[in-house]
Design a protein around this nucleic acid. Sequence first.
DNA 1: TTCTAAATGATAATAATTATTATTTACTAA
DNA 2: TTAGTAAATAATAATTATTATCATTTAGAA
Lengths: 146, 146
Amino acid sequence: MVLEEVTKALSAKGLKITHQRIVVFKALLSSPLHPTAEQIYDGIKKDNPAISVATVYKTLETLVENQLINKVPTPEGTMRYDARIDNHNHIYISNTNEIMDYEDEELKGILAQYLSKKKFQNLHITDFKLQIKGEKIDPGKGINII
Amino acid sequence: MVLEEVTKALSAKGLKITHQRIVVFKALLSSPLHPTAEQIYDGIKKDNPAISVATVYKTLETLVENQLINKVPTPEGTMRYDARIDNHNHIYISNTNEIMDYEDEELKGILAQYLSKKKFQNLHITDFKLQIKGEKIDPGKGINII
DNA sequence: TTCTAAATGATAATAATTATTATTTACTAA
DNA sequence: TTAGTAAATAATAATTATTATCATTTAGAA
């Protein structure tokens, strides 16, 4: 997703096209690492020293509310962000704090079928995800997963 | 789990049997609501005004480290605790902030079978849970789920 | 170009949690 | 049973992540 698509996505939601929103959104789009708000702030401030950390938080919240990005709670208690909004699962790697995307059509099918059979009285299911937790066996060897 | 079992569980882990640990552990065991540390503190302070909030946090952390309880991150970003340590899933109810246990043998079987087939290179899977998110359709009507 | 609601920057405030440290206590071993 | 000692606790300060406040700026409509 590049500039044109970002501006299109923002205006489709009735959001004003601001430099800050473009920069924050693009920074998240370019990172597969599920960064924190702080990490995004650190990443953009060299080229955009005037953007304040509060704006980064606020912008991310706005994008989440408009379903342009996702917010991911982690076992450490901090929030991280994900530019992907399609249905996918995460693997949280406890010895490196990485969050990896994990996508598998078979898994999606299995879960969807399972839940469609179940009856939940008085409850409307809005989302379901398999949260996988693991440890890298050899963190020194770099990312090499699945 | 009553007093005798609590003390047994603590000493089996080599932990000193203190009044504070017994009180905190029993408070969590008696709550199915996945309370926060603060809520546990509030619950015990009437009968135990001398126990400090820092001790509640520390005790819970100690119990988590010794795998006597579980720590559950929530979409609000706060941590909650769960006395159940057997494998089970959670339903997070976004309009009431409740966390419900959800247990289903069929689901366990499906997930275990799915994951046993998958190959994860360089990664050791330690845990997996289905995180279900939903909304109560009529929160006024009380808890009536599944 | 002007106008106005919305967005931003700077910073204060809050909430949740962790660290510090002096004091107390559970367990060990004599 | 009673010291002795490492571990645990209470009180509180500090930290971290996040949100609120509010004066100023700006995007987009008229």
